[in-house]
Design a protein around this nucleic acid. Sequence first.
DNA 1: TTGTAAGCGTTATCAC
DNA 2: GTGATAACGCTTACAA
Lengths: 349, 349
Amino acid sequence: MTSRADGRKRATISDVAAGAGVSRSAVSKVFNGTGHISEATTARILDAARELGWSPSSAAVALRSARTRAIGLVVYRSRDVVEISPISSAVIAGIESVLSPLDFGLLLHVRDRDQEDELDFYRRLVSANRVDGVILTDSVVGDRRFDVLHELRMPAVLLGTPAEEIPLRNVDVDPPGAGMESPVAHLVRHGHTRIAYVGGDEKRVVAMHRRRAFDAAVADRPGIDGIAVETSYSANEAAEETLRLLRSPDRPTALIYASDPMAMAGMRAAKLDGFRVPDDVSVIGFDGLTMGEWVEPQLTTVRRDGVLRGRAAAWEILDVLGAAPGERPVLHVPELLVRGSTGRAPDVP
Amino acid sequence: MTSRADGRKRATISDVAAGAGVSRSAVSKVFNGTGHISEATTARILDAARELGWSPSSAAVALRSARTRAIGLVVYRSRDVVEISPISSAVIAGIESVLSPLDFGLLLHVRDRDQEDELDFYRRLVSANRVDGVILTDSVVGDRRFDVLHELRMPAVLLGTPAEEIPLRNVDVDPPGAGMESPVAHLVRHGHTRIAYVGGDEKRVVAMHRRRAFDAAVADRPGIDGIAVETSYSANEAAEETLRLLRSPDRPTALIYASDPMAMAGMRAAKLDGFRVPDDVSVIGFDGLTMGEWVEPQLTTVRRDGVLRGRAAAWEILDVLGAAPGERPVLHVPELLVRGSTGRAPDVP
DNA sequence: TTGTAAGCGTTATCAC
DNA sequence: GTGATAACGCTTACAA
């Protein structure tokens, strides 16, 4: 209403104050719920702000209050796959769904795995100071990011479980690697006695726990033979391992894979090699992706709720910052989603 | 070295200046390449900065220079699918790959389609003023976002093509909807004369162009019958339409789908209905996702380079801001990736 | 209940 | 070449 009128520049708190005939602090108080401002003035201020299309400049707020209202998320992609993994994208959607109503922004960083400047990247992330906190994913054995972030005093949480004790909170199902019980039980119930697990790269902590959980589930069941093989998480490797396993003299009658893509690739390889699924061999994936519905037979899989995991991670970092809304979300143990790729064990000696 | 020494607070430009025995302006000049500072002082300043782990506070820079060095990206997810689509995630990875080396941040917003507060969301996006520019995706017919952003003077580009003239730049292949030529040609070359296109929701501009391109490709070829059906882009609907088409008296011998998931679901439905692929019917998807390799037969598809599209969009918004690096990336027309799901037309009357 | 005024950490404009 | 100094737009004691 005064100096700016219209057009050129964006309104500032002073314009709003002038418009409402009050001081700048009054405006600030109304927008932050601090202090006590009468209803009447509050209304005038809100009106003026709406009219001018004003809301606080995030840069000024960030500078003044040393809070950016933004959370950083670092996701990884493999070198050979261009996209972000479907499960990561579910996590992202989940995170956004809690940040966005609170007016927190999500600053996304996509990194290639085994890129050189790992730690340096995190140092820059911190010193640029664009975020109030960071969500980390995909812990590996010997991961040094946690110590770095902690030393630099950047609030952070890990979505997943670390290999060792870390100075940050982490969010994961309990126990880590949970979710192996129901598929193994399902297979055993259907008469399978030789079960293979085609796992992922055990440098990644989740893969390590998964494999251990598989070993434990098998060990708990006398008479059941389990064989675990490790891959780099690639679908192609999974297919190769599948053939190797199925062509061996004491071949398994059921295969569990570390991911749905691996399972789909493995199932295809098995079928091309003359095995019927699920008559000759049962197949189970991990993650519960929708794409498993588009193959024949439809893929039985262990469903993980990526969106919920994202929500939980977001809640946790906000809690560290003292800004968490409502109750802490609870992760549930992944449960088997039975579709068509599992069945009774064949009558093999 | 002075007031802060270590521990508690983050270093500021003053600490660096003190450490190097110069003024704050000198430090600023070195870090921004403005002004002339001698080699010797430059080195001292850089040393001091490194030692203190200092880099400019983005909040202060943003406030002072009215530039946030961040780009906003709005991606949509459908209500029934939790994840961000694979093609969007490729785009995200592409955008990040150009922003990140330039120290631009990517502020990601995930929105549900047909969420109520559409325009209001964009107004808040602008007035919060957290980003220097915005990348929009997924234009629809009657899209009003472009006008809003333009009125609010927020630099923005559209990745895709608008339904009508808009006051923003857009980035897309030329012509929009390109990529229909090669699959149709491929099918015709293999003797197919009845070709169906199972398209997406034509409120979305890309779907509209795609269908028109299909119509044109068919019209260009005398003797070829084309039939286009519209769906909501859902895999289930695609499967239903597939059956409807294949059960009709003058059934097509080839099906092109608007996406790979639709094609996979359609192919499964066809096979369950007793059709052999590609012997009885050929199937072509759109996007070139890796998952098409995990079905049998492997899915022939029109490959779109999502990463490159992301790179191009990022380049374009940076160019609007006067910060684009190097040459403008060039999008190429999507090309057919022939895998196993297409073959010679069967001998039907 | 409201207003005054002092910074937050930079950068730009001048002097020197 | 280098250094004062005044903003940038907001929040927050503190005063009124």
